[in-house]
């Protein structure tokens, strides 16, 4: 358990800036998700915290101590890798015990700690198995136990569930959340799956092209994305290109109030934020998908733009129907200005 601070940390590979100078504070016991598409710099940032990459500049502070240029074996961090990285020439017990043995702990203590860690991840009875005899989910649990047994100050997880199927991912992320809360361990979790980040994190750090786009709680990020990138990346968002003029924005046939400077702007509306109303814009339904709790209608706006709308499943909507819709809640983005948000 510890506090992690990044101060002006950056990484360049030759002339390519993988991570632009950034700062971030993570409090004791917090679970923070680094979320972004491939190449956004999130894994490089995690590897700099773990000691596998040296920052070009900046400080990595763990409880106030700069470890930016300390080798991984001397850092109070532990990393769970996407590939599990279990040592296949050792059995489960030996994998988990390896770090403790390096610390020259007495055999009885090693045994006790390993068994406790395996019980924590639900793998008691598996200690003599080879990693090759385990399923992907079980392998990842061993990798987690291997980290937790060392009682690190910071737990780093690099897309740990990326290679697992959806059902297993959901189960494991709940288990990880429970273990993290139980131990109160400061955790940094890298993922490109927004549902994973939204379900797991205390705070989400959205990254793009080596820079932080937004930091906030899952609710904040989802409800109030601060940049068009975040708006487009988190959840489903209709990003409609338009023009701001005289306190209003016109886009895809909609005209809504927006207290923003004149010029090109983007009207952002979530599918669930449209309402069916008599005075709304008439759009033609191109496709209807039943998503269980609601219907998802893909419609065509006034200027031919594609618009996605959530509709109550009790309403009968078919391909070719005309719907009258209006945005009830929306945001307007304009380059160089703070976004406008409707009430």
């Amino acid at each position: 358990m510890a506090r992690l601070s990044l101060a002006g940390v950056s990484k360049e590979f030759g002339s390519v800036a993988a991570v632009s100078p950034l700062s971030l504070d993570i409090t004791d016991g917090e679970l923070v998700c680094l979320l972004g598409p491939s190449g956004s710099g999130k894994s490089t940032l995690l590897r700099m915290i773990g000691g596998f990459e040296m920052p070009t500049a900046g400080q990595v502070l763990i409880d106030g101590q700069d470890v930016a240029h300390v080798r991984p074996n001397r850092r109070p961090t532990a990393m769970v890798f996407q590939s599990h990285a279990l040592w296949t020439h050792m059995n489960v017990f030996e994998n988990v015990a390896f770090g403790l043995k390096l610390r020259k702990l007495p055999a009885a203590q090693v045994h006790e700690k390993v068994m406790t860690a395996l019980e924590l991840v639900g793998l008691n009875g598996y200690e003599k198995r080879s990693p090759r005899q385990l399923s992907g989910g079980q392998q990842q649990r061993v990798a987690i136990a291997r980290c937790l047994v060392l009682e690190p100050k910071i737990l780093l997880m690099d897309e740990p569930f990326a290679s697992l199927d959806q059902h297993l991912r959901e189960r494991l992320r709940e288990e990880v959340r429970q273990i993290q809360r139980k131990l109160g361990i400061t955790t940094l979790f890298v993922t490109h799956a927004q549902d994973e980040a939204l379900a797991l994190a205390d705070r989400i750090v959205v990254m793009s092209m080596g820079a932080i786009e937004q930091v906030g709680t899952p609710d904040e990020i989802y409800a109030n994305p601060s940049t068009p990138f975040v708006a487009g990346f988190i959840g489903t968002m209709n990003m409609l290109k338009g023009i701001a003029q005289a306190g209003h924005v016109s886009a895809a046939g909609f005209r809504v109030k927006a207290d923003i400077a004149d010029g090109e702007a983007t009207l952002a509306v979530r599918p669930e934020d449209f309402v069916l109303t008599d005075g709304g814009l008439a759009v033609k339904v191109r496709r209807v998908v039943n998503l269980g709790p609601y219907l998802l209608a893909e419609a065509e706006g006034g200027d031919g733009s594609a618009i996605t709308v959530h509709i109550d499943k009790n309403r009968v909507v078919r391909e070719g129907d005309i719907l009258a819709i209006a945005p009830q809640r929306y945001a307007v983005y304009r380059e160089g200005a703070a976004p406008y948000r409707s009430a």
Partner: peptide, 9 residues
């Protein structure tokens, strides 16, 4: 890297 991570030189 995992070995270095758990403390191996």
């Amino acid at each position: 890297e995992a070995a270095a991570d758990v403390g191996a030189t």
